[in-house]
Amino acid sequence: MASTPVINLRKGHAVRYNNEVCTVSDFELKTPPRMASYVQMSIRTLSTGKVYNLRMTSNESLESVNLNREPHEYSYKDGEDYHFMHPETFEDVILMESQVKNAKDYLIEGQKYTVQFADDVVVGIELPPSVVMEVTESPEGVKGDSANNVYKAATLETGLIVQVPLFIGPGDKISVKTEDNSYLGRAN
């Protein structure tokens, strides 16, 4: 694969570091007075989510990786394998549990998700910023607790537990932020 000078990298670029495919999550070029310039960056592995903080001189290089993102529809789970179907070619793509990681709490059959390919090999799944899910279990709110912003635990259709306001009940559809599992609001 081609080697790319670190000075040409930007957020979102895919590189290979320690034999793992990583994406650049933070990038800053520093030029201190009377010193050689250097690049301070953070990269995140797609397989494990581990973050590396790197400081490299501006003339160093990293191996660039061709990262493609394609929409796929989540079909079903079979043991520890997750099956996704390409909407146009109907090709079945199988991701292992280690590739799905925390995204499994947001996988709903029939929904579309972005599958990531590095050099034509499946490396993971990219979630949208928020997902609409249905509440399956939620305790009743206690009257009189509404003076403050009081939250209660609610179980969603995938088994994910989210803190929601007291007025949310079973059967309600809510929007959940995938970054931190937080309640965003009711959904239609």
Rank of each mutant, 00 (worst) to 15 (best):
D180V: 10
V39E: 01
R34D: 12
Q99E: 13
A103F: 08
K152R: 09
M96N: 12
T89L: 06
N148R: 13
T31I: 11
A2I: 11
E70I: 14
D120K: 14
P165L: 00
K77W: 00
S175Q: 13
N18Q: 15
S182K: 14
V142A: 06
D145E: 14
F117K: 10
E63V: 07
L127T: 05
L166N: 09
K30E: 11
R186V: 13
V131G: 02
P71T: 09
N148E: 10
V100Y: 04
N148W: 04
Y82K: 04
G141Q: 01
Q163W: 08
I7P: 00
I174R: 02
I7F: 00
P32V: 07
E88K: 15
V150F: 07
V132C: 07
H83C: 07
S146F: 11
S175W: 02
S64R: 09
Y17M: 06
A2T: 15
E91S: 12
N8Q: 13
G169Y: 00
V150Q: 12
L9V: 10
E73K: 11
E157P: 05
K112T: 15
S25C: 11
R69Y: 06
A153H: 10
Q99Y: 05
Q116K: 14
E91W: 02
V24Y: 05
G171F: 03
H83I: 13
S98R: 14
H72F: 11
L67P: 04
V21W: 02
F27A: 01
S42N: 14
N149M: 10
D92C: 10
R44P: 03
L184G: 06
E80P: 03
D78H: 09
I174Y: 03
A147P: 00
N19P: 03
K30T: 15
K177A: 12
A118D: 03
V132M: 03
M41L: 15
S58A: 13
F167H: 13
